[in-house]
Design a protein around this nucleic acid. Structure first.
Lengths: 220, 220
DNA sequence: GGTTTTTGTCACCATACGGTGACATATAGG
DNA sequence: CCTATATGTCACCGTATGGTGACAAAAACC
């Protein structure tokens, strides 16, 4: 009979680059399948088909692996991309609406990012922290650029409003990964996302209509 | 010298009721300290000062313990409480504003609920599911009651709007447990919560001002 | 060809987990 | 008083975890 060890060891080809990308790819797969907390050394080595000692050798420890993963991936929209998406906007309200729609699409396209966001409040790994830093930096930079474009935001507390709406979108999108319902709204279909985004649009329109015109050309 | 085992065993008094509440109390403490995923059999037994076998005896298994915990606690506002909070509202917009403010206060008063919400998308334990059911039921019931009070919501898609705003509030409050910043908004202080709530108010006002009047007495 | 370094494999460690069986003793029932 | 049951304690199981040291062999270097 054929014993397990004698069957066909088929040793891994000696190629560090390939091994490293195999590991990093396995991280994505594991995050998607089991969430951030599912990315442990043993599960990861198993998933990547790699001995775990190689992970230690190439990335130091789990945190090093997270950091490397955070640097290698595309987890967030870029400021340029976002500015392009809001380019033709007629006014600040329009820019905000377009921006949030682009944000929504960008998030829904990145399930790994959503999974990280979902785990964010609970598991605070270096990957989470790294992603957070990127987000903060780009959001702030984008705010600055958009403000220049439209000459400020009138009376609207743009930081609070975007924080609120972006938080809502992130949370709903993250929930939609594994759960379907929130407050009676099905959040997995495009149709219902459109419903949510329509509500966002309406709120932004109302907000700018109600508060801005009074001082539209007033004291900045 | 005094050995550990011979020192003073001080056996636990034989009182099932006390043991059970000790266990349930330890669940709250553990959730607050380590999050939902920190509530394991061993850690729990340690925290409660109880042998883990008693947990199995009294609650079956971990899921049974979660279920018992879900039934025993006060995790969410009640419909009556919420209706009282919005009692003097002048119109639908005002009711919604008051409701969301009460919701915010209620959430911030219940750190355990926030911790569960934080873990919700990731760890899907029976406790999370039970809490979710309560929320869904009460939200829907509340919507119904409020609609009766104010004769509908005009053109506002109230379900989408409240889902969106409640999601934002829940997420920000849950994040605030362990993180401080989101999109440039410090979310731990009362002052900045007021800022966020002011933005919510402004959006609601704008929303109702912009969309409702057109058909205020129109086709339902 | 011989040596050194790199890459990969394997066996092992201490620890923690969820879960169970056997035992001791306090309390309640007869 | 004797017995049965309820409560609590202890030792243990199998499995998984994060992490490390020893070894084999391919590659690179001289």
């Amino acid at each position: 009979m054929v014993t397990k060890t004698a069957a066909k060891p088929k040793p891994r080809p000696r190629d560090r680059a390939k091994t490293e990308t195999a590991i990093l790819d396995a991280v994505s797969r594991l995050i998607l399948r089991d969430g951030l907390s599912g990315v442990g050394i043993n599960a990861l080595a198993r998933e990547a088909g790699v001995d775990k000692v190689l992970i230690y050798r190439y990335f130091g420890d789990l945190d090093g692996l997270y950091r490397a993963y955070a640097e290698h991936g595309d987890f967030w929209w870029t400021v340029e991309e976002m500015l392009a998406a809001t380019e033709g906007a007629t006014d600040a309200a329009d820019a905000l609406k377009r921006g949030l729609r682009h944000h929504t699409a960008a998030m829904r396209q990145r399930p790994v990012t959503l999974a990280v966001i979902a785990a964010e409040p609970a598991n605070r790994t270096p990957l989470v922290v790294a992603l957070e830093e990127v987000r903060e930096k780009r959001s702030i930079e984008l705010m600055k650029q958009e403000a220049l474009r439209h000459g400020g935001w009138g009376d609207v507390d743009i930081v609070a409003v975007t924080a609120l709406l972006a938080a809502a979108i992130d949370y709903l999108a993250a929930r939609a990964l594994k759960i379907r319902v929130y407050g009676g709204v099905e959040i997995k279909t495009d149709k219902n996302w459109e419903r949510v985004l329509a509500a966002v649009d309406a709120m932004i329109d109302g907000l700018f209509a109600a508060t801005s015109p009074a001082k539209r050309k007033g004291t900045s």
